[in-house]
């Protein structure tokens, strides 16, 4: 079973040279720590920055320079600032190559729910609905089950949807899965995790074809 940093490490393997990438809050943010040296990846922060860098050195925090998670950050050489309409303009126009975001539930048809639990929690969708409606490639990073042990990979989402038929791939602490017209398809399993465990914790339709390799972490 992977910890959050290892999930981020596995996600980083999805990055390709020259990609413009939007990383959501939570585990996706950690992916920035595992970008392979020498790979040119430009991080987009939807509050208006291309070329997000590392956290500032202590004492170098700038209140005018934050990411979409409201964390203090820095810029890298070649960065650019812009307003929120242009930020979502480049997202809507499909200029961002990859979006990685968290989820509460994903359905076997690629629907995603991550913004509201009726009567309990209302944080809002932020930019998630815009991202999932427009991004070419959407990967979800999440735990396979909720704190009660119930599967978060479902036949259909129970919670209010963020987007419909948009998730392409899911990375959890147990597995890497893709969404196909046949439902979830198991691609990789975490080191030491059995196919049976993944099957038992996946409520939606899951296909398992042949030997499933372990992730390379």
């Amino acid at each position: 079973m992977l910890n959050k940093n290892q999930i981020a490490q596995r996600l980083a393997q999805e990055l390709q040279e020259g990609f413009y990438v939007n990383l959501g809050i939570g585990i996706p943010t950690l992916v920035a720590n595992y970008i392979p040296a020498g790979l040119n990846v430009i991080l987009q922060s939807e509050n208006g920055l291309l070329g997000m860098g590392a956290f500032p050195w202590e004492g170098g925090e700038d209140p005018d320079l934050i990411n979409a998670g409201k964390q203090t950050i820095t810029t890298v050489p070649g960065s650019a600032f812009f307003d929120s309409a242009m930020s979502f303009g480049m997202i809507r126009a499909g200029k961002v190559d990859l979006t990685i975001l968290g989820a509460m539930e994903v359905s076997e048809t690629g629907d995603i729910a991550n913004w509201k639990i009726p009567g309990k929690m209302v944080k809002g969708m932020g930019g998630a609905m815009d991202l999932v409606a427009s991004a070419k490639n959407i990967i979800v990073a999440m735990m396979h089950t909720n704190p009660k042990g119930e599967s978060k990979l479902l036949p259909q989402c129970v919670l209010p949807l963020t987007g419909v038929a948009c998730v392409k791939k899911i990375v959890t602490e147990l597995a890497v899965l893709e969404v196909t017209s046949e439902g979830f398809n198991l691609l990789e399993r975490a080191p030491g995790v059995s196919v049976e465990e993944i099957v038992s914790k996946t409520a939606g339709k899951l296909t398992v074809n042949g030997d499933i390799p372990e992730m390379m972490i």
Binding site: S87, F88, G124, M125, G126, M129, A133
Partner: peptide, 25 residues
């Protein structure tokens, strides 16, 4: 609660004199 890009673009539309926008969000 409305999507962030929709919020931004509805402001943009007002400032550009356009009555409405179309968005997939």
């Amino acid at each position: 609660l409305i999507p962030q890009g929709t919020l931004a673009t509805r402001c943009l539309a007002a400032g550009y004199g356009m009555p409405a926008i179309f968005t997939p969000a």
